[in-house]
Design a protein around this nucleic acid. Structure first.
Length: 731
DNA sequence: AGCACGCCGACT
DNA sequence: GTCGGCGTGCTC
């Protein structure tokens, strides 16, 4: 049984199941069991492979929380393949808000302020009787762990009372309210009824007094919505292929233009619900989730239910979790937090915008550092469901997994983009300016004709770097050696890594010249330059700010600009993306340019000093096959996923401890076929450095085992901390 | 000898 | 994760 303690250091432990509670305890059952005199929540993973070790008995069984056995199988696989402790993975399938720190008082001791049967938090007990007494009480069973799911708030409902209809001939307001209530099935939350009819409480009170309705308290309604049917046309072109995928099961990539993804999602969902199964749709952002929910409510035939699941739901999340687990929602659309939602009848998983980075939590932050696509693929296999990953430009690691044996990913017939803008690649070699005349002319032409131009600049602030005009040296942060950026063009420079602030101006550290000027293309500078050249204000859209976003020309980050449609899209500095470090830079640049072309109805204009770059030219003509042909061999040669697998371990602690741990403990212990790199120091301003170790092997699981080994090693070594990430999106 | 501290392994 | 045992090294 895996106890819900989030650590690499604790293996599953064995317990006896008392004869009385034995029925129905099996893989996935949630139980309470003792460990070192304290009771803990745990999930049964299976019978003990070497029976006889168990000495303690399970305290209680929580069938209401249990994990479906197939989903447990997926969790075991995910934990094993991505070096995430099983309890962390399992936590993501349990109800959100589950409070594992509550106790049921079984036999209150003398002087306790509670009677038997009350449920109290650990903190309250500690305060009342002290930590030692709590331990003793726990050990002898006077209190027992009783994890609690937050109670749903009760609200007042108005319910039509059967029997003779009251005479409302002389009460038009009451008649109207009563009519609406009957039309809506005879029961509504009073607040909904009143706001829909615009009536006051007195009307309702009067109806209740006459006996026409009764006012009862019921749990707040769960945000699970009924489909209305009607607008099905968008999904028609996708129905056959979606039906094939859902019928066959297993993982698929489906290259679908971005603006047609909702149709493909609806087709996948429909194929699942028509089989009587559920569909889980995973999108990178809340906004996309909500949009897809609205789309599905219209696009699916009437008679099904759809729910959203993401962090913005607050207390409703627990209720949606229960509705999905109990099969009351046919389709659920969620962010990565929904990736491990238990489904009563799993039929299809669908990953929207598959290559999007938001599908994976960053290591060390809340959420599992595993890409939603990988979670979905593991679930599809374990739960016997289809997995459909949508994007016009799928990640190469997924796409290239196509032809190979076990992890084979099928491809559904790609849908060609409808309409492609004319593309202009402007050669900036030999030009010192940021904005070419071609670019400015294009902006004038489109803006003058009533069109809208979106300008993509993926660097916030005013200038990415400040350089010396005389010797060309770049001003760097004294702490991190990273170029200082100018957030607003004013008198202050800031380090993008550590946030340290330095005064602008002064002299060049290399040659002493005072001719320092901003360089590097950042969004504020482009905005200012454009406004000056065009003679009209330019809008701004970034994650944090929106200004004049109705202006004919709007500059912003790729994520924000690509959310909308434009007559022309401009990328003034595609080189910053092309030259970014890492093997994935080419792929990411291709995707940026491709998506920009999709978002532009008339013109895509790209400025570059590498006008012959193959990925740039391929993206300009929408040629994904060319990207595959050039990049997949590079991934293969470099030993990158899916041809090999790697893990990054970040070790925090004193240098000698790190080196000793890696050389004398890790290296001798890793299995054959796993390469272990030398630790590389990563310097950080103001904070001690940390070390990175790269692990690599042909197969995923050996890499994950080595990564877990690092994590366990660090967990058992005082002063050493490790964070591991298997197959990160970027190394 | 007596005690503080940190490391390590057990916990089922 | 949390605890206790034990070895090291220091103090009385």
């Amino acid at each position: 049984m895996a106890l819900m303690i989030p650590t690499h250091a604790l293996p599953p432990l064995s317990y006896l199941v008392p004869a009385g509670t034995g029925s129905g305890v099996g893989p996935g059952t949630v139980v309470v069991a003792p460990l070192s005199g304290r009771s803990r929540l745990g999930v049964v993973v299976g019978p003990d492979p070497e029976p006889g070790r168990a000495r303690e008995e399970i305290c209680s069984v929580r069938h209401d929380l249990s994990v479906p056995p197939d989903l447990l199988g997926a969790c075991l696989r995910i934990s094993g393949s991505y070096a995430v402790p099983l309890p962390n993975v399992l936590r993501a399938t349990l109800p959100p808000g589950l409070d594992a720190g509550r106790f049921l008082v079984v036999r209150p001791g003398g002087g306790w302020p509670w009677e038997s049967g009350s449920v109290v938090s650990r903190a309250e007990i500690k305060k009342a009787i002290g930590a030692d007494a709590l331990r003793a009480a726990e050990a002898e069973g006077a209190v027992t762990l009783r994890p609690a799911v937050p109670e749903r708030k009760a609200v007042e409902w108005s319910v039509v009372r059967g029997g003779a209809e009251p005479d409302l001939a002389r009460a038009p307001r009451q008649r109207e309210v009563f009519g609406v209530l009957k039309d809506r099935g005879g029961a509504l939350p009073s607040s909904v009824l009143l706001s829909e009819t615009g009536a006051g409480r007195s009307v309702l009170r009067e109806l209740a007094r006459r006996g026409a309705v009764t006012l009862v308290r019921r749990p707040e309604p769960v945000p699970v919505f009924d489909t209305s049917g009607g607008g099905e046309s968008g999904l028609k072109p996708f129905r056959r292929d979606a039906g094939r995928a859902v019928g066959r099961g297993g993982p698929f990539v489906w290259r679908v233009p971005t603006d047609e993804q909702p149709g493909a999602v609806a087709a996948v969902a429909r194929a699942a619900v028509e089989e009587g199964e559920q569909a889980l749709i995973l999108a990178p952002e809340r906004e996309t989730v909500d949009r897809l929910v609205r789309h599905l409510l219209r696009a699916l035939p009437a008679g099904y239910t759809v729910a959203a699941y993401h962090g913005g739901l607050g207390k409703d999340r627990t209720a949606v979790h229960a509705a999905v687990r109990d099969g009351e929602a046919d389709v659920v659309v969620g962010t990565r937090a929904a990736a491990l939602l238990p489904l009563a009848r799993p039929g299809a998983f669908c990953v929207v915008d598959e290559p999007d980075g938001s599908h994976r939590a960053e290591a060390g932050y809340e959420g599992l550092p595993i890409h939603t696509r990988d979670v979905a693929v593991a679930r599809g296999r374990a739960e016997g469901a289809a997995v459909v990953c949508l994007s016009p430009v799928p990640s190469l690691r997924l796409f290239a997994a196509g032809g190979r044996g076990r992890g084979r990913v099928g491809e559904l017939p790609p849908r060609a983009p409808v309409g492609w803008p004319s593309v202009r690649v402007v050669d900036m070699r030999g030009s010192g300016s940021v904005l070419s005349s071609t670019l400015l002319d294009a902006c004038r032409r489109f803006a003058g004709g009533g069109g809208r131009v979106g300008v993509i600049v993926d660097r916030l602030g005013y200038a990415a770097v400040v350089t010396c005009n005389r010797c060309g040296a770049v001003r760097r942060c004294p702490g991190c050696d990273v170029p200082l950026a100018s957030p607003d063009g004013s008198s202050l420079l800031a380090c993008p890594r550590c946030g340290r602030r330095e005064p602008n101006g002064g002299r060049c550290a290399e040659c002493g010249s005072d001719r320092l000027s901003p360089a590097g293309i950042a969004v504020e500078r482009v905005r200012e330059g454009l406004a000056e050249a065009l003679g009209s204000p330019v809008g701004l859209i970034t994650a944090g700010r929106r200004e004049l976003d109705g202006a004919p020309v709007v500059a912003g980050t790729a994520r924000c600009v690509l959310r909308e449609g434009w007559d022309a899209v401009v990328i003034p500095d595609v080189d910053s993306s092309l030259q970014a470090s890492g093997l994935g830079a080419t792929e990411r640049s291709f995707r940026l340019v491709y998506r920009a072309a999709e978002a532009a109805s008339g013109l895509l204009l790209v400025q570059t000093r590498a006008p012959e770059h193959h990925a740039l030219l391929a993206a300009a003509r929408g040629d994904y096959a060319a990207l595959v042909a050039s990049e997949v061999p590079r991934l293969r040669a470099a030993g990158y996923p899916p041809f090999a697998h790697l893990a990054v371990a970040s070790l925090h602690g004193p240098e000698e401890k790190v080196l000793r741990a890696v050389e004398s403990r890790l290296r001798p212990a890793v299995e054959a076929g796993v390469e272990v790199s030398d630790p590389v120091g990563v310097a950080r301003a103001g904070r001690p450095p940390y070390w990175k170790v790269l692990l690599r092997a042909r197969e995923l699981d050996p890499v994950a085992r080595a990564a877990s080994l690092v994590a366990r090693m660090a967990a058992g070594t005082h002063g050493l901390q490790a964070r591991v990430e298997v197959d990160p999106e970027e190394v």
